[in-house]
Amino acid sequence: MKISNEWVNNRENREGIKGWLNPSRYGWERISYWFQRLTGVFLLVYFIGHVYETSSLLRGENAWNAMLEITQTPGGHIFLILVIGTSTFHSTNGIRLIFTHGGKGLGNPGRPDYPYDAISLNYRQRSGIWVALILAAIAMLYGSAVLFSGK
C-alpha cells in the first residue's frame, strides 16, 4: 500500500531543525550526531573558502600573498585551529560511523531485560566518541601551539 501524499506532506508538529538544537536530551550518541553535522557544515564552508583562496593563484603572486596574509592574523589562526579540530573530529567519528552503519561494534541481538539498556549504545560507541573528541582537542592544542608560537 502506498503512503498517501496527504500524510507525508503533513509537517504539523514536526520538530524540524530546532530538534537538533538541544542534543543533551538523548545522551552522547545524539551529541556526537549533532557535532558530526555541525563539523560537516563548517568543513563545507571551509572547503568553499579554501577553493576560493587557492584560486587567487590565478591572479598572480601578489594576490596569493594578500590572501595568505588573512590567515596570519589572530582571527585567521583561530579559524585554522577550528578547521584542525573539526576535521579531526569529523574524520575520526566518521570512521566509527562507517563501522556502526554496517552493524559492526554494536553487539548482537538478544533477550532484553530490565532496565532495558540498549546494547547498541555500548561502551565501544561511547569510547569512540570520546576518542574523537580527545583527538580533536589534542590536534587543536598542537595547532594553536604551532600557529601562535610563530615558528
Binding site: Y26, R30, Y116
Partner: peptide, 16 residues
C-alpha cells in the same frame, strides 16, 4: 543518532 534506542521503553533497540 541512537535517540530511538535511548527512549525505547521495551529494550527493542531500533538503532541496532
Amino acid at each position: 543518532a541512537g535517540s530511538c534506542s535511548k527512549v525505547c521503553p521495551k529494550g527493542v533497540d531500533p538503532a541496532l
